[in-house]
Design a protein around this nucleic acid. Structure first.
Ligand code: FES
Ligand code: FES
Lengths: 146, 146
DNA sequence: TTAATCCTGAGTAATTTACTCGGCATTTAT
DNA sequence: ATAAATGCCGAGTAAATTACTCAGGATTAA
């Protein structure tokens, strides 16, 4: 149940961009330095974020990256899914989406419901924390009730 | 954010044991067959579960494994932690437990709170679903409120 | 023209995962 | 006493994934 470095770094970098929203494009070198992340590795991460439309890039001198949306419109879930694919605790949930290649045990499997619930919980939580929330440090309290 | 095969198989196997609670020791071969898991791999998993005190073993003919506690006393979180260690989305949370080797960025890190919250959510959820709940198929509904 | 930037694809070392293999130890049934 | 069914243990390994690096080209502003 761990995030990859890609996901972890990606979120940190996006927060960095959020802090500098409307300051023009931020070059990767600055982010890498500020967040203590390998610049070449960050390049890969930003390539993915760009492919997913979460950031814009500007080339050339005075170029860099900017958020594609205001910080309150981008959530942690978006970032992680862009970098790691669907957030799910077990494979047979995400794969079985098409009913065709559904896990053969799905009907008898007593654990499936648990993983589905866990998956939904995690996604819900991460989809309700925006970059803006993180910057302000005081996002809404989520309470889990029975 | 995926479970390892060890965790996934472990939970399945424990449910199997729960279904056969009070039927005497169940041999590994039977579980491996029933759940379609490599017996030798299951051996490793059960070794860990035993080390953590979640199951008892009985050797010799007519031997096998039994739950160390009734199914309503063992929860999914226990099993996964026994097999995969602490449930946490990022390392710098679990490592930093001792305050000594705490992540150096902890004080300035804007993402830390998110991971802490996520960690607590996951643990809470998994600690409130017991093997008995899984067998009965209708565990309590958890609702996440803002 | 130059320098700073992004962009791309390939390569790689280390780690982790998901196992397998071989053999010994214990217990019950005969 | 012996045999058979089990658990127990430590090592080994192939494949996959992770976390990067490397080399060089493309774009743009000064
Ligand atoms: S094993 Fe696929 S649904 Fe449980
Ligand atoms: S990087 Fe360690 S607390 Fe955020």
């Amino acid at each position: 149940m761990r995030l990859s470095a890609k996901g972890e770094y990606g979120v940190r970098a996006m927060v960095y961009l959020a802090l500098n929203y409307r300051s023009g494009p931020i070059p990767l070198s600055k982010i890498a330095l500020g967040e203590n992340i390998s610049q070449q590795f960050l390049e890969q991460i930003f390539a993915a974020l760009r492919r997913e439309g979460l950031i814009y890039s500007a080339r050339g001198i005075k170029g860099g990256y900017t958020l594609a949306y205001p910080p309150e419109k981008i959530c942690v879930g978006d970032i992680i899914r862009a970098l790691e694919g669907p957030i799910t605790p077990v494979n047979c949930l995400s794969e079985g989406k098409e009913e065709a290649d559904r896990c053969t045990r799905a009907d008898i499997c007593l654990t499936r419901n648990v993983w589905e619930r866990l998956r939904d919980h995690i996604n819900y939580l991460l989809d309700n924390i925006s970059l803006q929330d993180m910057i302000e440090g005081k996002f809404d309290e989520f309470i889990v009730n029975k």
